[in-house]
Design a protein around this nucleic acid. Structure first.
Lengths: 149, 149
DNA sequence: CCTTGACCTTCCTACGATGGGAAGCCCCAC
DNA sequence: GTGGGGCTTCCCATCGTAGGAAGGTCAAGG
């Protein structure tokens, strides 16, 4: 029943650093914490719960802005789960898009590295690729450079 | 043989914005460009080649710091391709690590969303998961909170 | 009662890569 | 010579996080 703890304890208990707790408060993600007479922030069990919620959401890659939405829905007992699901699926789509981008990079680079002898000789397909003329604009129909000269 | 072009032309020709070209120069990735009498930066064919190299490397996800290394190797005719390959493979490993992280998030979230009805009712496994007690420190052996009180 | 050390407060700085914008100079075409 | 577009530098913002300085607070132990 003691309840209220200071920011350092709250940080350790929730895995959110004290710095970030202050930042979240400052940016409005969290409401201003209660204070002791001397100005120390105090966190009760419910606040800790909220902080853990925020941390979990961050761990799942949600932006702070998205988390504000999730928190609002969480605290709205009359919410429609459809709203939550939409937010989540939107985020999943975002994650998948970023994954696809990274995978394209990794594939390209791995394939280049695969063709590189990796010994003491200077010849290197990786550098050759980087130095080659890559079409800047057209997305995929990668126009091969004209052969005749 | 006109050769030298101003920064805006170089930007369009290479796909690197003028802002970024200045930034790269400022941070030492690129050597200071030649200037006209009135202070305009000038870029020759070789500079454009370098800029395209940088852009390609950025497109492959290399950090500016890594690109500095790649540029140095590129310009070192006596380099060992092993060095380039090592840099590339290190970066691939980094990409794969980030991909794995994002995939873990996406998988978790997609599975939660999958169990969410997504209708007008408020019940939502996604929020339930976010609100649940997730172990902060211990990696997986998820210690359940003590029952007795 | 006073010191000590751990904690808290605010405020400022930085990261990495990028974009936006303002104020002022430069250059070319008309 | 004028207008408009390009160039210069300088400052600010992003996003989430961390570090540090300067100073107040608190509890424990002498």
């Amino acid at each position: 029943m003691s309840g209220a703890v200071t920011i350092g304890v709250a940080a350790k208990a929730t895995g959110v650093s004290a710095k970030m707790i202050r930042y979240y408060e400052e940016t409005g993600l969290l409401p201003p914490a209660d204070r002791t007479a001397s100005g120390y922030r105090l966190y009760g069990e419910e606040d800790l719960h909220t902080l853990r919620f925020v941390r979990r959401a961050r761990d799942l890659g949600f932006s702070v802005e998205d988390i504000a939405g999730l928190l609002a829905l969480w605290q709205d007992r009359g919410r429609a789960s459809a709203q939550v699901k939409a937010l989540a699926l939107h985020h999943v789509a975002d994650l998948r898009r970023r994954i696809a981008e990274l995978e394209a990079m990794a594939r390209t680079l791995a394939s280049l590295a695969d063709h590189c002898s990796g010994d003491s000789r200077p010849d290197c397909p990786i550098l050759d690729d980087l130095a080659a003329d890559h079409a800047p604009d057209p997305r995929w129909p990668h126009r091969v450079k004209p052969l005749s000269r």
